[in-house]
Amino acid sequence: MNKNFTIPAFAEPITGLPDTPTCAANELKRRFQAPADEVRTAHNALAEAHETLGAKVEGIVAETFAGAIHENMFDEELAEKLNGKADETSVTEQMAAEATAREALENANSNAHSSLQRDIAAKCTIATGTFTATGDTMEITLPFTPTAVVLSSESYDTFMVPQGYKSNYNSVIAAELRGNKVIMHSTPLLNTAGRLCYYLALQ
Rank of each mutant, 00 (worst) to 15 (best):
F159H: 12
V172A: 12
C124R: 10
D136Q: 15
F144P: 11
T141N: 13
D157G: 14
T141K: 15
I140V: 15
V150N: 06
I173D: 11
P146R: 06
I120Y: 07
T125I: 04
Y165S: 12
I140Y: 06
T125S: 14
T130G: 02
S155K: 13
T125K: 15
G164W: 05
V161M: 05
T141W: 06
S167G: 07
E139W: 07
S155V: 13
T128G: 10
S155F: 12
T141F: 08
S153P: 12
P143M: 08
V161S: 03
T125F: 08
A133Q: 11
Q163P: 00
T132F: 04
G164I: 00
I173K: 12
S155G: 01
N170A: 11
A133T: 04
I173A: 14
S155P: 03
F144C: 04
A148C: 11
S167V: 02
L142Q: 02
I126S: 01
T145K: 14
N168E: 08
Y169K: 09
Y156A: 04
P162W: 07
F144R: 14
N168P: 04
N170S: 10
L142V: 04
V149R: 03
V149W: 04
V161H: 01
A174S: 10
I140W: 07
E139D: 07
V150H: 07
K123D: 02
C124H: 03
M138L: 15
K123W: 00
T158C: 14
P162M: 13
T141G: 06
T147K: 15
V172Y: 04
E139C: 01
M138Y: 07
L151H: 10
K166Y: 04
V172G: 00
T137I: 12
L142W: 05
T158A: 11
K123L: 11
L142P: 05
G135K: 13
T130M: 11
M138S: 15
T128D: 08
V161G: 09
